[in-house]
Design a protein around this nucleic acid. Structure first.
Lengths: 355, 355
DNA sequence: CTGTTAGCGCATTCAA
DNA sequence: TTGAATGCGCTAACAG
């Protein structure tokens, strides 16, 4: 392996001069500069990162700890974060916690061991004592997508309440009263905030407050399907289903199809988080879209601010509603709804569509 | 920051003894062992990775360079790779080349600079001179999903020819003669192998060899849509469309919907690579499924073998066909096909369904 | 502007 | 089994 010593020798300068040219950027004569650069190129010199890190007490590596890189929301976030990090001169160490507190703690240790300069975390909902340990050690941290209780870490998260408000307006606009809610885990801030916003305000929008219409999963598709099946199993026959994230919606759609067959086409769908294929199903899935890229990009930017001693502020990223529903359906939902008390859902009675 | 020196002092032993206990695993008395361990725990000592790397000439970090982490195939692969790597005591450095040769080269340099122990690469199709430089430097490499010309790196890739054969059998079983092929870039091995296997054998399966039915994109959804539009723009009215990967199929479906409207429902769909939602569209998308997790896991296993001086062998991972089509459709494709010469597609004439 | 030198934290060698 | 000493490759402080 070629070291900076080899480069210096070949360029006929001292080790110190070579170092200054190669990384110091400091005062060096044009002559030695060009000779060092030439020597480095000829020898195909690549600096030894760990050695440099040891000396400089920084690594130019950032960590990204997400709960599941397979979740399209997080893979989009990761893509944007990696891109932004690279733009700012950092590389990214990736890890999946799989929503497990112990695993999260172990990975945090691995990050700490690598002496990364800071990290982005989408925290799981459980025990965060390991996190506190790290922060005690002074490692810069920015939370993304989710907040963590009892931490002042800057957080870039979706505007969950605002997004839910858009969904509620849309539901009212379409005349839905019997709406099933397939929520996420209450231990995770996105799960709790979306559920609370929805439950506390659905009555204002003319939506039934029957608790049997509400169930939750763990933000994995299978659990969304199970939650939907439980709702149907209680005899509920909603005219619309609201999924608390893309994967919960995916699961709900699968369960609807499996349980109701063709009648599933009579159930309108709306999701918090948008997925690639939501326009392609029948009926299509409308969605509140929060740009995961933006969260990833802003997260890295905030983290780098933090690392450089600048202030980093928490932000809520606003959402946009994507209305994929056509005109209100002429055909009423085909199944007799046990809990339904009235109708309010004909083209004539349809209020103004939301923006 | 607490160093091993602090631990040694607290345990009342020398630095060397502490080191032996903490990582050497070598001969130490039970007494000093327990005291060192206790001191380390009390001080919350976490070894300095870069310093250790500098001394040991290894980092316990593996690189993973994919073309796009947002592609579900690669995010599944990455998830499995990260998991397997962690199981084997490694952490994973992630990077996206975005299918760009220059970016791939830059990231390879970044990997080399970090002195990672080896890396998994899903190579882009273009210039691979940077790669050769690295391999000259002796860095262990395993290719995943795609092969790279002129390299003997072990490769874990799908059995593209075998997968295409399954698709061809299915197409024949459904009686399709006019089949559009939305291929991937010929510069990438998966694009070339799938296309070659399909083009060279489609005639045997009774499929039209009209070149106007074939077009290609770059494995991003938008390019798949554009390719599909070009095929339709040439007046082709296929009864089935075969997409060379999940995202090409996604693009093709979008273009079919946009261009043909309801008539798009008359076109059957089949994809190389399976996506979450393929069962939910109308008609559903059948697919050849190659398990990306398996590729990721085997890739890491092969890489670790290589690092440890064991032999690593290339493998082709077999695919399974997922037939989501119902009984053959009663309604013929609704548009008059300019190039069609005969029919072969009524329920009566339908040959045996494939397995 | 440049050469020399001292360590960053750790694993490992060599003596004891 | 253990302590002391060495150096991995590099940057930064210092002296010239």
């Amino acid at each position: 392996m070629v070291t900076i010593k080899d480069v210096a020798a070949r360029a006929g300068v001292s080790l110190g001069t070579a170092s200054r040219v190669l990384s110091g950027g400091a005062h060096t004569s044009a002559d030695s500069r060009s000779r060092v650069l030439a020597a480095a190129a000829e020898l195909n010199y690549i600096a030894h990162g760990p050695a440099r890190s040891l000396r400089r007490a920084k690594t130019d590596v950032l960590g990204l700890l997400v709960s599941d890189i397979r979740n399209p929301f997080f893979s989009e976030l990761a893509h944007a974060a990696e891109r932004e990090a690279r733009r700012l001169g950092y590389t990214v160490l990736l890890a999946n916690s799989d929503e497990d507190a112990a695993q999260e703690a172990a990975l945090l240790r691995a990050f700490a061991s690598q002496r990364i300069d800071g990290f982005l975390l989408a925290p799981q909902g459980g025990d965060s004592s390991a996190l506190r340990g790290l922060l005690g050690g002074g490692m810069p941290l920015v939370c993304v997508d989710r907040t963590v209780r009892g931490s002042e870490a800057p957080t870039i998260a979706p505007d969950n309440a605002g997004g839910v408000a858009l969904v509620l307006e849309w539901l009212r606009g379409r005349g839905h009263r019997e709406v099933a809610f397939v929520g996420g885990p209450a231990t995770i801030s996105t799960g709790a905030e979306r559920r609370d916003a929805y439950l506390s305000r659905r009555a204002e929008h003319g939506i039934s407050t029957d608790p049997a219409l509400v169930d939750e999963g763990d933000f994995q598709a299978d659990s969304g399907a199970a939650a939907m099946r439980r709702i149907l199993g209680r005899g509920m026959r909603p005219t619309a289903v609201f999924g608390a994230d893309g994967l919960m919606t995916l699961g709900a759609v699968r369960a609807l199809r499996a349980e109701l067959g063709d009648a599933a086409r009579g159930v309108e769908l709306v999701s918090f988080d948008d997925l690639d294929w939501f326009a392609l199903t029948d009926p299509p899935v409308s969605a509140v879209r929060t740009d995961a890229s933006t969260i990833g990009r802003l997260g890295i930017a905030a983290l780098v601010d933090l690392i450089n001693g600048r202030a980093a502020v928490s932000q809520r990223v606003p959402s946009a509603f994507i209305d994929r529903a056509g005109p209100a359906r002429a055909t009423a939902p085909p199944l007799s709804p046990p809990t339904r008390r009235g109708r309010g859902r004909t083209p004539a009675s349809r209020p103004d569509a939301p923006r």
